[in-house]
């Protein structure tokens, strides 16, 4: 099976994250950048399918030059090669434009299965998998907590608030996964060394035949008009125990409907 895994480099959600003051895009320069956590589960799932059914796993990422570091990290887990779409004109692309670029790149790779995380920790819009499926004219099996491959048929357990739905579609399809689907492996030292020698191909917008004004900030269908820092935490309410501290604590908890 020819599997493509979408990998996005994002600012570490555990560190301080900011939007840029000039154009309100995610500041990818100052933050420590990592593989979007959910994408690691997609990589793991792809590797497991390859181990069970054979085939090839390719990582596809769109992002600035610095994203290459995360692509190498992804390769160290075990995929066979990677494609990096990198072009200055992509800066500030909205979800619609992103799906356009990724769909064009995917067409050059003709995958049987596209795997990705169900959301990225920076944008968190969760729409790119659906948009990709629409553009490619294939099924979108989203929010999977389990994926089974049986010949050319894909079956997922789609996680919902109440439980799960079983959804089936023929390959090719786009499958997005949650972190309940598996436990991603650590790269091995051998994997890290091998990743340095794996093919990493870069594509520019021109290679995909996409005009620069259809993507990036210029072509964005939505714009961040302004942003501001989250207000600093207020001091809270201090209760000094004058003999009635316990009662006042309970009153506070009751007022906030904690008890």
């Amino acid at each position: 099976m020819n599997i493509v895994v979408l990998v996005k480099q994002v600012p570490d959600s555990g560190a301080e994250r900011n939007l840029r003051s000039d154009d309100s895009t995610v500041d990818r320069g100052s933050a420590s950048n990592v593989i979007n956590e959910m994408d690691e589960y997609a990589i793991e799932e792809a590797l497991r399918i390859r181990e069970a059914h054979g085939g090839e796993v390719t990582v596809l990422s769109m992002g600035p030059a610095g994203a290459a570091e995360s692509i190498r990290k992804a390769l160290s887990m075990g995929p066979d090669g990677a494609v990096h779409v990198v072009d200055d004109a992509l800066h500030g692309s909205c979800a619609v434009a992103t799906s356009k670029v990724l769909a064009a790149a995917l067409r050059t790779l003709s995958p049987d299965l596209v795997l990705c995380g169900a959301e990225s920790t920076d944008g968190r819009v969760q729409v790119v998998p659906h948009m990709l499926a629409e553009r490619l004219g294939v099924a979108a099996l989203t929010g999977a907590r389990k994926l089974t491959v049986d010949g050319g048929t894909l079956t997922v357990e789609r996680q919902t608030e109440e439980g799960y739905e079983v959804v089936t579609a023929p390959a090719p399809a786009v499958v997005s996964v949650w972190d309940t689907i598996n436990e991603p492996r650590y790269p091995s030292f051998k994997g890290i060394m091998a990743a340095k020698k794996k093919p990493l191909r870069t594509l520019a917008l021109a290679d995909l035949g996409i005009p620069a004004d259809e993507v990036g900030l210029a072509g964005a269908t939505s714009a961040v008009v302004e942003h501001s820092q989250r207000p600093p935490r207020s001091g809270g309410q201090k209760i000094t125990d004058g003999g009635d501290g316990g009662v006042r604590l309970v009153e506070f908890l009751a007022a906030e409907k904690f008890v």
């Binding site: 492996r185 650590y186 790269p187 091995s188 030292f189 051998k190 994997g191």
Partner: peptide, 11 residues
């Protein structure tokens, strides 16, 4: 086992 799979048991 995890440490072994990462390749740290025969450095």
């Amino acid at each position: 086992r995890t440490v072994g799979r990462a390749g740290l048991l025969g450095l």
